[in-house]
Amino acid sequence: MKNAPTIPPRCWAEIDLAALERNLRRIRQALPPHIRYVAVVKADAYGHGLHPTVARLMHAGADLFAVANVAEGAAVREIGPGWPILVLGPLLPEEAEFAVHYDLTCTVSSFAEVDRLDQVGRQAGRALPVHLKIDTGMGRAGVWHEHAPALAAEILKRPHLSLDGVFTHFSSADCDPEFTDRQRRLFLDTLSRCIGIADRRLLIHTDNSAGLESLAEDGPINAVRVGLLQFGILPHESSLLARVQPDPVFSFHTRIGLVKTVPAGTGISYGRTRVVSRETKLAVLAAGYGDGIPRACSDRGRVLVRGRRCPILGRVTMDQTVVDVTDVPEADLGDEVVLVGRQGSEQISLGEFSHWADTIPWETLTSVTKRVRRIYRTGLS
Protein backbone atom coordinates (compact mmCIF):
# COMPACT_ATOMS: atom_id res chain seq x y z
CA MET A 1 0.00 0.00 0.00
CA LYS A 2 1.56 3.28 -1.11
CA ASN A 3 1.68 6.33 1.14
CA ALA A 4 -0.16 4.59 3.95
CA PRO A 5 -0.56 6.92 6.95
CA THR A 6 1.42 6.15 10.09
CA ILE A 7 -0.77 4.62 12.78
CA PRO A 8 -0.47 6.69 15.98
CA PRO A 9 1.10 4.77 18.87
CA ARG A 10 -1.06 3.42 21.68
CA CYS A 11 1.97 3.09 23.92
CA TRP A 12 5.38 4.63 23.41
CA ALA A 13 8.69 5.42 25.05
CA GLU A 14 10.43 8.73 24.49
CA ILE A 15 14.24 8.67 24.44
CA ASP A 16 15.95 12.02 24.95
CA LEU A 17 19.29 11.67 23.17
CA ALA A 18 20.33 15.22 24.07
CA ALA A 19 19.96 14.30 27.75
CA LEU A 20 22.08 11.20 27.13
CA GLU A 21 24.88 13.35 25.71
CA ARG A 22 24.64 15.83 28.60
CA ASN A 23 24.86 12.96 31.08
CA LEU A 24 28.03 11.61 29.49
CA ARG A 25 29.67 15.02 29.73
CA ARG A 26 28.62 15.49 33.37
CA ILE A 27 29.93 12.05 34.33
CA ARG A 28 33.26 12.85 32.68
CA GLN A 29 33.49 16.12 34.60
CA ALA A 30 32.92 14.30 37.90
CA LEU A 31 35.71 11.77 37.22
CA PRO A 32 39.49 12.19 37.24
CA PRO A 33 40.64 13.36 33.79
CA HIS A 34 42.67 10.24 33.02
CA ILE A 35 39.70 7.89 33.40
CA ARG A 36 38.41 6.43 30.13
CA TYR A 37 34.67 6.12 29.54
CA VAL A 38 33.39 2.62 28.73
CA ALA A 39 29.76 2.98 27.60
CA VAL A 40 27.83 -0.17 28.47
CA VAL A 41 25.11 -0.68 25.84
CA LYS A 42 24.11 -4.31 26.36
CA ALA A 43 20.48 -5.48 26.12
CA ASP A 44 19.58 -3.05 23.32
CA ALA A 45 21.24 -0.21 25.25
CA TYR A 46 19.17 -1.05 28.35
CA GLY A 47 16.01 -0.99 26.23
CA HIS A 48 16.67 2.49 24.80
CA GLY A 49 17.49 1.22 21.30
CA LEU A 50 21.02 0.25 20.33
CA HIS A 51 21.58 2.13 17.08
CA PRO A 52 20.44 5.65 18.03
CA THR A 53 21.94 5.35 21.52
CA VAL A 54 25.36 4.16 20.34
CA ALA A 55 25.47 6.71 17.53
CA ARG A 56 24.83 9.55 20.00
CA LEU A 57 27.40 8.18 22.47
CA MET A 58 29.96 8.02 19.67
CA HIS A 59 29.20 11.64 18.85
CA ALA A 60 29.43 12.56 22.54
CA GLY A 61 32.90 11.08 22.94
CA ALA A 62 32.64 7.63 24.52
CA ASP A 63 36.06 5.95 24.47
CA LEU A 64 34.86 2.40 23.95
CA PHE A 65 31.77 0.23 24.25
CA ALA A 66 30.89 -2.86 26.27
CA VAL A 67 28.26 -5.41 25.28
CA ALA A 68 27.05 -8.74 26.62
CA ASN A 69 27.71 -10.98 23.62
CA VAL A 70 29.10 -11.24 20.11
CA ALA A 71 25.80 -10.48 18.35
CA GLU A 72 25.53 -7.18 20.23
CA GLY A 73 29.16 -6.41 19.46
CA ALA A 74 28.57 -7.03 15.75
CA ALA A 75 25.61 -4.63 15.82
CA VAL A 76 27.73 -1.89 17.43
CA ARG A 77 30.54 -2.45 14.93
CA GLU A 78 28.08 -1.94 12.06
CA ILE A 79 27.25 1.51 13.47
CA GLY A 80 30.80 2.80 13.36
CA PRO A 81 34.42 1.65 12.96
CA GLY A 82 37.29 2.61 15.21
CA TRP A 83 35.84 2.18 18.67
CA PRO A 84 37.07 -0.77 20.75
CA ILE A 85 34.17 -3.06 21.68
CA LEU A 86 34.50 -5.33 24.72
CA VAL A 87 32.33 -8.46 24.97
CA LEU A 88 31.73 -8.86 28.71
CA GLY A 89 30.26 -12.37 28.65
CA PRO A 90 31.88 -15.69 27.80
CA LEU A 91 31.87 -16.76 24.16
CA LEU A 92 30.21 -19.90 22.91
CA PRO A 93 32.69 -22.04 20.91
CA GLU A 94 31.22 -21.13 17.51
CA GLU A 95 31.23 -17.39 18.27
CA ALA A 96 35.00 -16.89 18.34
CA GLU A 97 35.41 -16.59 14.57
CA PHE A 98 32.73 -13.87 14.51
CA ALA A 99 34.58 -11.98 17.23
CA VAL A 100 37.56 -11.94 14.87
CA HIS A 101 35.46 -10.84 11.90
CA TYR A 102 33.91 -7.90 13.78
CA ASP A 103 37.15 -6.94 15.54
CA LEU A 104 35.78 -7.48 19.04
CA THR A 105 37.73 -7.73 22.29
CA CYS A 106 36.91 -10.92 24.19
CA THR A 107 36.77 -11.54 27.93
CA VAL A 108 38.86 -14.47 29.18
CA SER A 109 38.14 -16.34 32.43
CA SER A 110 39.70 -19.78 31.91
CA PHE A 111 42.60 -21.69 30.41
CA ALA A 112 40.19 -23.41 28.00
CA GLU A 113 39.19 -20.02 26.60
CA VAL A 114 42.84 -19.08 26.19
CA ASP A 115 43.47 -22.25 24.17
CA ARG A 116 40.42 -21.73 21.97
CA LEU A 117 41.01 -18.04 21.25
CA ASP A 118 44.73 -18.56 20.64
CA GLN A 119 43.85 -21.16 18.02
CA VAL A 120 41.33 -18.84 16.35
CA GLY A 121 43.94 -16.07 16.33
CA ARG A 122 46.44 -18.41 14.72
CA GLN A 123 43.92 -19.24 11.99
CA ALA A 124 43.23 -15.53 11.46
CA GLY A 125 46.93 -14.72 11.33
CA ARG A 126 46.86 -12.07 14.03
CA ALA A 127 46.76 -11.57 17.78
CA LEU A 128 43.27 -11.28 19.23
CA PRO A 129 42.72 -8.59 21.90
CA VAL A 130 41.44 -9.96 25.22
CA HIS A 131 40.64 -8.72 28.71
CA LEU A 132 41.32 -10.92 31.70
CA LYS A 133 38.40 -10.99 34.14
CA ILE A 134 39.20 -11.74 37.79
CA ASP A 135 36.55 -13.07 40.17
CA THR A 136 36.97 -11.21 43.47
CA GLY A 137 33.74 -12.39 45.05
CA MET A 138 30.97 -12.02 42.48
CA GLY A 139 30.96 -15.78 41.93
CA ARG A 140 29.96 -15.51 38.30
CA ALA A 141 32.28 -15.11 35.28
CA GLY A 142 36.00 -14.55 35.82
CA VAL A 143 38.97 -16.61 36.93
CA TRP A 144 39.14 -17.04 40.71
CA HIS A 145 41.61 -14.45 42.01
CA GLU A 146 44.05 -17.06 43.37
CA HIS A 147 44.51 -18.49 39.86
CA ALA A 148 44.56 -15.16 38.01
CA PRO A 149 48.38 -14.67 37.98
CA ALA A 150 48.86 -18.05 36.31
CA LEU A 151 46.19 -17.31 33.71
CA ALA A 152 47.67 -13.87 33.00
CA ALA A 153 51.09 -15.47 32.48
CA GLU A 154 49.56 -18.00 30.09
CA ILE A 155 47.89 -15.26 28.02
CA LEU A 156 51.19 -13.36 27.75
CA LYS A 157 52.91 -16.50 26.41
CA ARG A 158 50.43 -16.93 23.58
CA PRO A 159 51.61 -15.29 20.32
CA HIS A 160 48.09 -14.94 18.94
CA LEU A 161 46.58 -13.22 21.99
CA SER A 162 47.08 -9.63 23.10
CA LEU A 163 46.30 -8.82 26.73
CA ASP A 164 44.69 -5.37 26.49
CA GLY A 165 42.89 -5.13 29.82
CA VAL A 166 42.13 -6.59 33.24
CA PHE A 167 38.93 -6.12 35.21
CA THR A 168 36.59 -7.38 37.91
CA HIS A 169 32.94 -6.89 38.77
CA PHE A 170 31.66 -5.58 42.10
CA SER A 171 28.65 -7.53 43.33
CA SER A 172 27.33 -5.12 45.97
CA ALA A 173 28.54 -1.62 45.12
CA ASP A 174 25.05 -0.21 45.64
CA CYS A 175 24.47 -1.70 49.08
CA ASP A 176 27.65 -3.00 50.77
CA PRO A 177 30.58 -0.55 50.67
CA GLU A 178 32.69 -2.71 53.02
CA PHE A 179 32.51 -5.75 50.75
CA THR A 180 33.12 -3.54 47.71
CA ASP A 181 36.25 -2.13 49.35
CA ARG A 182 37.38 -5.70 50.09
CA GLN A 183 36.85 -6.66 46.45
CA ARG A 184 38.78 -3.60 45.27
CA ARG A 185 41.76 -4.32 47.54
CA LEU A 186 41.74 -7.98 46.51
CA PHE A 187 41.71 -7.01 42.84
CA LEU A 188 44.62 -4.58 43.25
CA ASP A 189 46.61 -7.15 45.22
CA THR A 190 45.97 -9.79 42.56
CA LEU A 191 46.94 -7.33 39.84
CA SER A 192 50.27 -6.68 41.56
CA ARG A 193 51.01 -10.42 41.55
CA CYS A 194 50.44 -10.81 37.79
CA ILE A 195 54.03 -10.88 36.55
CA GLY A 196 54.73 -9.15 33.25
CA ILE A 197 51.75 -6.82 33.01
CA ALA A 198 53.16 -3.79 34.83
CA ASP A 199 54.99 -2.58 31.73
CA ARG A 200 51.98 -3.03 29.44
CA ARG A 201 49.46 -0.30 28.61
CA LEU A 202 46.33 -2.02 29.86
CA LEU A 203 42.79 -0.88 30.43
CA ILE A 204 42.16 -1.53 34.14
CA HIS A 205 38.53 -1.25 35.20
CA THR A 206 36.52 -2.30 38.24
CA ASP A 207 33.66 0.17 38.63
CA ASN A 208 30.21 0.38 37.13
CA SER A 209 27.79 3.25 37.81
CA ALA A 210 27.15 2.12 41.38
CA GLY A 211 30.85 1.92 42.27
CA LEU A 212 32.02 5.34 41.11
CA GLU A 213 31.79 6.86 44.59
CA SER A 214 34.73 4.81 45.88
CA LEU A 215 36.91 5.18 42.78
CA ALA A 216 40.39 6.37 43.77
CA GLU A 217 42.09 9.14 41.78
CA ASP A 218 45.46 7.42 42.02
CA GLY A 219 46.42 3.83 41.36
CA PRO A 220 46.24 1.68 38.24
CA ILE A 221 42.48 1.90 37.56
CA ASN A 222 42.06 3.98 34.41
CA ALA A 223 38.53 3.28 33.14
CA VAL A 224 34.94 2.97 34.34
CA ARG A 225 32.01 1.05 32.87
CA VAL A 226 28.97 3.32 32.80
CA GLY A 227 25.55 1.88 32.12
CA LEU A 228 22.54 3.01 34.14
CA LEU A 229 23.94 6.41 35.14
CA GLN A 230 24.34 7.63 31.57
CA PHE A 231 20.62 7.02 31.11
CA GLY A 232 19.84 9.36 33.98
CA ILE A 233 19.20 6.80 36.70
CA LEU A 234 20.97 6.86 40.06
CA PRO A 235 21.77 3.29 41.19
CA HIS A 236 21.91 4.59 44.77
CA GLU A 237 22.40 7.86 46.62
CA SER A 238 25.96 9.18 46.93
CA SER A 239 27.76 12.50 46.86
CA LEU A 240 29.48 11.84 43.52
CA LEU A 241 26.33 10.64 41.82
CA ALA A 242 24.43 13.62 43.20
CA ARG A 243 27.10 15.93 41.72
CA VAL A 244 26.51 14.43 38.30
CA GLN A 245 22.77 15.30 38.45
CA PRO A 246 21.89 13.24 35.38
CA ASP A 247 18.79 14.03 33.36
CA PRO A 248 16.24 11.26 32.69
CA VAL A 249 16.60 9.87 29.18
CA PHE A 250 13.60 7.50 29.21
CA SER A 251 9.91 8.22 29.66
CA PHE A 252 6.96 5.85 29.18
CA HIS A 253 3.53 6.85 27.86
CA THR A 254 0.15 5.46 26.81
CA ARG A 255 -3.36 6.77 26.15
CA ILE A 256 -6.85 6.35 27.51
CA GLY A 257 -8.80 3.96 25.30
CA LEU A 258 -12.11 4.01 27.17
CA VAL A 259 -13.79 6.02 29.93
CA LYS A 260 -16.71 4.62 31.91
CA THR A 261 -18.44 4.93 35.26
CA VAL A 262 -19.32 1.88 37.38
CA PRO A 263 -21.47 1.64 40.53
CA ALA A 264 -20.21 0.86 44.02
CA GLY A 265 -19.59 -2.84 44.52
CA THR A 266 -18.22 -3.45 41.00
CA GLY A 267 -15.24 -5.81 40.77
CA ILE A 268 -12.38 -4.66 38.59
CA SER A 269 -10.43 -6.85 36.16
CA TYR A 270 -9.56 -10.56 36.50
CA GLY A 271 -10.20 -12.22 39.84
CA ARG A 272 -12.11 -9.21 41.18
CA THR A 273 -9.03 -8.36 43.26
CA ARG A 274 -10.44 -4.86 43.73
CA VAL A 275 -14.09 -4.04 44.41
CA VAL A 276 -14.84 -0.31 44.35
CA SER A 277 -16.60 1.13 47.37
CA ARG A 278 -18.10 4.14 45.56
CA GLU A 279 -19.38 5.08 42.15
CA THR A 280 -16.10 5.24 40.22
CA LYS A 281 -14.98 6.79 36.98
CA LEU A 282 -12.58 4.41 35.25
CA ALA A 283 -10.06 4.97 32.48
CA VAL A 284 -9.00 1.90 30.55
CA LEU A 285 -5.42 2.41 29.35
CA ALA A 286 -4.29 1.08 25.98
CA ALA A 287 -1.34 -0.81 27.46
CA GLY A 288 -0.66 -3.72 29.81
CA TYR A 289 2.04 -6.22 30.66
CA GLY A 290 2.37 -7.01 26.95
CA ASP A 291 3.86 -3.55 26.66
CA GLY A 292 5.94 -3.45 29.83
CA ILE A 293 3.59 -2.45 32.67
CA PRO A 294 4.52 -5.19 35.16
CA ARG A 295 1.69 -7.33 36.51
CA ALA A 296 3.12 -6.67 39.97
CA CYS A 297 1.87 -3.07 39.62
CA SER A 298 -1.68 -4.39 40.01
CA ASP A 299 -3.49 -2.47 42.75
CA ARG A 300 -0.18 -0.75 43.65
CA GLY A 301 1.01 1.47 40.86
CA ARG A 302 0.11 5.03 39.95
CA VAL A 303 -0.03 6.87 36.65
CA LEU A 304 -0.31 10.53 35.69
CA VAL A 305 -3.52 11.72 34.04
CA ARG A 306 -3.71 15.46 33.30
CA GLY A 307 -0.87 16.00 35.75
CA ARG A 308 -2.47 14.14 38.67
CA ARG A 309 -1.69 10.77 40.19
CA CYS A 310 -4.32 8.09 39.65
CA PRO A 311 -4.19 4.57 41.15
CA ILE A 312 -4.18 1.35 39.14
CA LEU A 313 -7.24 -0.74 40.03
CA GLY A 314 -7.28 -4.53 39.83
CA ARG A 315 -4.89 -6.66 37.86
CA VAL A 316 -2.79 -5.34 35.02
CA THR A 317 -3.73 -7.45 32.00
CA MET A 318 -1.83 -8.17 28.79
CA ASP A 319 -3.23 -5.29 26.73
CA GLN A 320 -5.13 -3.04 29.14
CA THR A 321 -4.80 -1.45 32.57
CA VAL A 322 -7.62 0.13 34.57
CA VAL A 323 -7.08 3.28 36.62
CA ASP A 324 -9.35 5.30 38.88
CA VAL A 325 -9.87 8.81 37.47
CA THR A 326 -12.80 9.77 39.69
CA ASP A 327 -10.77 12.68 41.05
CA VAL A 328 -9.87 13.82 37.53
CA PRO A 329 -13.36 14.46 36.16
CA GLU A 330 -12.04 16.04 32.96
CA ALA A 331 -10.14 12.85 31.97
CA ASP A 332 -11.29 11.83 28.50
CA LEU A 333 -10.85 9.36 25.68
CA GLY A 334 -7.47 9.71 23.97
CA ASP A 335 -5.76 11.59 26.80
CA GLU A 336 -2.03 10.96 27.17
CA VAL A 337 -1.12 9.03 30.32
CA VAL A 338 2.40 9.06 31.76
CA LEU A 339 3.66 5.83 33.29
CA VAL A 340 7.24 7.07 33.84
CA GLY A 341 8.16 10.70 33.43
CA ARG A 342 6.77 14.17 34.02
CA GLN A 343 3.35 15.61 33.32
CA GLY A 344 2.63 19.10 34.56
CA SER A 345 4.20 19.57 37.98
CA GLU A 346 4.04 15.87 38.88
CA GLN A 347 6.60 13.19 38.09
CA ILE A 348 6.87 9.41 38.41
CA SER A 349 10.48 8.26 38.42
CA LEU A 350 11.71 5.00 36.97
CA GLY A 351 12.80 4.02 40.49
CA GLU A 352 9.31 4.58 41.88
CA PHE A 353 7.71 2.67 39.02
CA SER A 354 10.16 -0.19 39.60
CA HIS A 355 9.45 -0.20 43.34
CA TRP A 356 5.74 -0.75 42.68
CA ALA A 357 6.73 -3.68 40.46
CA ASP A 358 9.06 -5.22 43.09
CA THR A 359 11.98 -4.99 40.69
CA ILE A 360 14.94 -2.80 39.72
CA PRO A 361 15.28 -0.13 37.01
CA TRP A 362 17.55 -2.40 34.93
CA GLU A 363 14.76 -4.96 34.56
CA THR A 364 12.06 -2.35 34.01
CA LEU A 365 13.93 -0.79 31.09
CA THR A 366 14.72 -4.09 29.39
CA SER A 367 11.14 -5.35 29.86
CA VAL A 368 9.51 -2.66 27.72
CA THR A 369 8.45 -4.75 24.75
CA LYS A 370 8.89 -4.45 21.00
CA ARG A 371 5.36 -3.26 20.39
CA VAL A 372 6.15 -0.08 22.32
CA ARG A 373 7.31 2.47 19.76
CA ARG A 374 10.52 4.33 20.61
CA ILE A 375 10.38 8.02 19.77
CA TYR A 376 13.77 9.74 19.74
CA ARG A 377 14.24 13.35 20.76
CA THR A 378 17.39 14.46 18.96
CA GLY A 379 17.79 18.10 19.98
CA LEU A 380 21.18 19.63 20.71
CA SER A 381 22.59 18.90 24.16
Score class of each variant (00 low, 15 high):
residue 121 G to E: 01
residue 133 K to F: 05
residue 182 R to P: 02
residue 131 H to P: 09
residue 53 T to Q: 14
residue 99 A to H: 04
residue 104 L to S: 06
residue 99 A to I: 00
residue 136 T to D: 04
residue 134 I to Q: 11
residue 96 A to V: 07
residue 72 E to K: 00
residue 104 L to M: 02
residue 61 G to R: 14
residue 169 H to V: 01
residue 83 W to Q: 15
residue 96 A to D: 01
residue 107 T to Y: 06
residue 139 G to W: 07
residue 134 I to K: 10
residue 180 T to W: 00
residue 84 P to E: 08
residue 100 V to N: 04
residue 111 F to C: 01
residue 85 I to Y: 09
residue 125 G to A: 06
residue 141 A to D: 09
residue 105 T to Y: 12
residue 67 V to M: 10
residue 114 V to W: 08
residue 186 L to F: 10
residue 185 R to C: 05
residue 187 F to K: 12
residue 122 R to C: 07
residue 141 A to F: 13
residue 187 F to I: 01
residue 86 L to T: 03
residue 149 P to W: 13
residue 68 A to D: 11
residue 92 L to C: 07
residue 70 V to K: 05
residue 93 P to M: 02
residue 114 V to L: 04
residue 101 H to T: 11
residue 137 G to E: 04
residue 64 L to T: 13
residue 115 D to A: 14
residue 161 L to H: 12
residue 169 H to W: 05
residue 132 L to S: 06
residue 74 A to P: 10
residue 102 Y to L: 01
residue 181 D to Q: 14
residue 184 R to G: 06
residue 133 K to E: 14
residue 97 E to M: 00
residue 186 L to P: 06
residue 57 L to Q: 12
residue 108 V to F: 03
residue 186 L to M: 09
residue 118 D to H: 11
residue 159 P to V: 00
residue 64 L to M: 15
residue 123 Q to I: 00
residue 129 P to D: 08
residue 128 L to F: 07
residue 134 I to E: 08
residue 108 V to N: 04
residue 164 D to N: 14
residue 74 A to H: 06
residue 127 A to E: 08
residue 145 H to A: 08
residue 50 L to F: 10
residue 113 E to G: 08
residue 61 G to H: 14
residue 65 F to P: 12
residue 179 F to H: 15
residue 69 N to H: 13
residue 133 K to W: 03
residue 82 G to M: 05
residue 66 A to D: 05
residue 112 A to D: 09
residue 128 L to T: 05
residue 142 G to S: 05
residue 59 H to K: 15
residue 71 A to K: 05
residue 131 H to E: 02
residue 158 R to M: 04
residue 98 F to K: 14
residue 63 D to Q: 05
residue 59 H to C: 02
residue 59 H to S: 12
residue 187 F to L: 08
residue 185 R to G: 04
residue 83 W to L: 15
residue 138 M to Y: 14
residue 175 C to L: 05
residue 94 E to W: 11
residue 90 P to I: 00
residue 180 T to Y: 01
residue 95 E to F: 04
residue 133 K to R: 15
residue 155 I to R: 02
residue 66 A to T: 12
residue 55 A to D: 14
residue 138 M to D: 12
residue 149 P to Y: 14
residue 134 I to H: 13
residue 116 R to C: 01
residue 147 H to T: 01
residue 137 G to L: 03
residue 166 V to A: 12
residue 129 P to T: 05
residue 125 G to S: 05
residue 165 G to L: 01
residue 87 V to S: 08
residue 103 D to T: 02
residue 53 T to G: 07
residue 94 E to F: 09
residue 132 L to G: 11
residue 85 I to E: 07
residue 117 L to W: 08
residue 64 L to N: 09
residue 165 G to I: 05
residue 142 G to R: 07
residue 170 F to L: 15
residue 136 T to I: 03
residue 105 T to F: 07
residue 177 P to H: 09
residue 59 H to I: 00
residue 131 H to A: 09
residue 177 P to C: 04
residue 126 R to M: 04
residue 58 M to F: 04
residue 72 E to L: 01
residue 184 R to T: 14
residue 172 S to H: 15
residue 89 G to W: 02
residue 115 D to M: 03
residue 116 R to F: 03
residue 58 M to T: 12
residue 118 D to F: 00
residue 84 P to H: 08
residue 126 R to A: 08
residue 150 A to F: 12
residue 156 L to H: 07
residue 104 L to P: 09
residue 75 A to K: 06
residue 85 I to N: 12
residue 180 T to Q: 09
residue 179 F to S: 15
residue 154 E to H: 14
residue 73 G to I: 00
